[in-house]
Each structure stands twice: as structure tokens, then as C-alpha cells.
Amino acid sequence: MALPRLVPRSGTDPSGHDELRAEVRRFLAEQRAAGAFTPSVDAWLSGWDEAFTAALAERGWLGMTVPVEYGGHGRSFLERFVVTEELLAAGAPVAAHWIADRQIVPSLLKYGTEAQRRHFLPRIVAGECFFGIGMSEPDSGSDLASVRTRAVQVDGGWRLTGAKVWTSGAHLAHAFIALVRTAPVDPAHRHAGLSQFIVDLRGPGVEIRPIRSMNGAHHFNEVILDDVFVPDDMVFGEIGDGWRQCTSELAFERSGPERVLSTFMLLQAASDAMAAGRLPRDANLGRLVGRVAGLHQMSSAVADALQRHEPAEVPAAVVKVLGTTTEGDIAEFAHLATDHTTDFAELAAAAVDQRPGFTIRGGTNEVLRGVIARGLGMR
């Protein structure tokens, strides 16, 4: 009753990638059999395993959409979608490369300079360069227009001062793309005067403070920028165009299968337990499977739109709102269905711990409902 079985086999996959899907499943089965990883919830956020990332790179499953001239594989967004969906459904530890591969790659291809592309893209493809996201700030919530981190132009570059928060993996990553103010705030045009910079997270003036979750996990961080120098060749895109660049980048962050499958392995475990008679039958399981199947189609449709270079901000927001709500409902269902003797009780407890973050990260669902309403022309 797992989502992978909801994707047709034997040449009937509508995306035409059943051989690739089967190849990824064989790889994952071999990795699990060898003890390379244990499935976990939210593994795309907290499962940092550079050895696993290297194994994916060796098989050509990083930087799949990167053109060959930049060391990539020149494959489609839908092929990448198939690979990432299978990795997520298996609860594989993909956090090390996730942000770089999901978000930084398309942003570099769209806004990066030729020098930036040639420096970063081959390293991302090889699983040797890891990125974070420098958007959110203390006391700002999801209001990116309230950014207070500032950049002042100096000889040869810029000086950045401020703080970023909820930066996943910053303590292990090499760099992040920071959204900062390069012009004074204009109350009538709050989105103006913002720019983006590629910041070396291991450079002077950068302090990374851990933010630990209630369960003791550490993947979030606060990043303090104290007069950090960023050379002109690390300006990302155009000065003053940061808001437009940032919002187009968010389509990649919000629409992916990680907004649907963070707790999928729990749905799989409950399905297996119910089929074996270890749990009583419950129609809610079928409802959740149906929701995940529908979201699979929606998320793959957004990947198809991105492949065609079509705007996808509103559909991505819809996937994020519906997907993260479903992830939370799966966590609650599994938690209520299990007891301390059930084999997935530990997974269920971890999912409940993580659940509050599902609808917050990537922009709160409340804010995204506003994005959807405006995009549909509603008042």
C-alpha cells in the first residue's frame, strides 16, 4: 500500500521513467542491507551523511539537471523528481546535498555568473560542496521584506552585518546565499533594495550558533555576520533584484516531494503492520494514501512546469500547504495507531516531535494561503 506501488510499473509510469525508479529502489535496498542507513523521518533535513551523498554522486544522481558543460548530467527535472521521490520515500539521509541540489543549482543556472557556475556547480555535482539558505531572520517570521541584515559597498566588495536564523546545516555547509538590504527601507516599496550574496560560512566574521530542537537534535542554526567581507565576484544576480530572485527560487523549495514525504516511511510501516494484522484496520489509512497519491501527481506537475521554465510559485505554494498538512496528519495517525511494542513507535514519536515545523519551514502555511489567494486573483 506504499506510494511507490501507486506509481505504475512495467512501462506504464506516465513520466516514462520506470527503469530509473527501479534502479534507485535496487540501490536503496542494497544500501539498507549493507547497513548504510536506517530510515528516518525528516531525513532530508536532519539526515546529514556525506558518505551516502558521495554514493549518490558516483551514480550520477546529484546535479542531474546541471548541463554537461558544468560537470552535470543534463537530465530532466522529472528524472530528478523520480530519484528524489524514491530517496525520500525510503527515509534516506540526503540532508548534506539537499539544499545545494534542490535550490542552489537552478538558482546558479538562472542568476549566477559564468565564474560562479564553473566554480560551484561541478563541486555540487561531485557531492563536495554543501549550501545553506540565508533568508529568515530573528523576529521576522515569514516576513522576508523585514530583512535587517545590511550590506555596505567597500573597495572590492561588500561588508555584511546582521543575523540569519533557522539555517539548516550551516554548521556543516560551506556557503549560503544571503538575502540582505543594500539600500534603505522604503515603506512604500518594502521589497525594493534587497540583494543576494554568496557567503563563505567558514570565513572570518561568521559565527554559527546551534539551535537545538526539543528532542535534542541539531540541524538548525543562527548565523551571525559581523562585518563579513564578500568580494564583488560573489554578488549573486543583480544588486537590488534580490526579492524577485528569492521568490522565484522558492518555487524549487516549496514544491518538491520533501513537502509530502517527510513522514512517508511511517505510512509504509502502518500499512505493513495493518496488512499483517498487527494493527486493526482503519479507513483513515486509505484516505492518507489517497492524499499522498494525489500530491504525488501535483508535485510532479510542478516539476514538469519548471522543466518548461514556466512560473510555478502559486502551484508550488499549493503543494507546500497541502503536502505539509498531510505529513502532519500521517504523523498523528501513526502516533495514535502505535503503542510501545509496535516496531515503528520510535519513528512515530520522532515524527510528532518534528510535526510543528512541517507547516512553518519554507514559509508558514498561513502566509502561503495569502500567496495562493493573490495568485488566484482573490480579494
Results as ranks from 00 to 15, higher is better:
D226A: 12
D227A: 12
V228D: 00
F229D: 13
F229L: 12
P231I: 08
D232K: 09
M234K: 08
M234F: 12
V235Y: 03
V235S: 04
F236T: 05
F236P: 03
F236Y: 11
G237T: 11
G237F: 07
G237R: 04
E238I: 10
E238F: 09
E238W: 10
I239G: 06
D241W: 14
G242Y: 03
W243Q: 13
Q245T: 15
C246G: 08
T247C: 12
S248G: 12
A251V: 13
A251K: 02
E253T: 14
E253S: 10
E253N: 12
R254C: 08
S255M: 05
S255E: 10
G256T: 07
P257A: 14
P257N: 05
E258N: 15
V260Y: 00
V260H: 00
V260D: 02
V260I: 15
L261H: 01
L261S: 01
S262V: 10
T263A: 10
M265A: 05
M265D: 06
L266N: 04
A270M: 04
A270F: 02
S271Y: 04
M274G: 04
G277P: 04
G277W: 03
L279K: 01
P280A: 03
P280F: 01
R281H: 10
R281M: 06
A283L: 11
N284Q: 15
N284P: 02
L285N: 02
L285A: 05
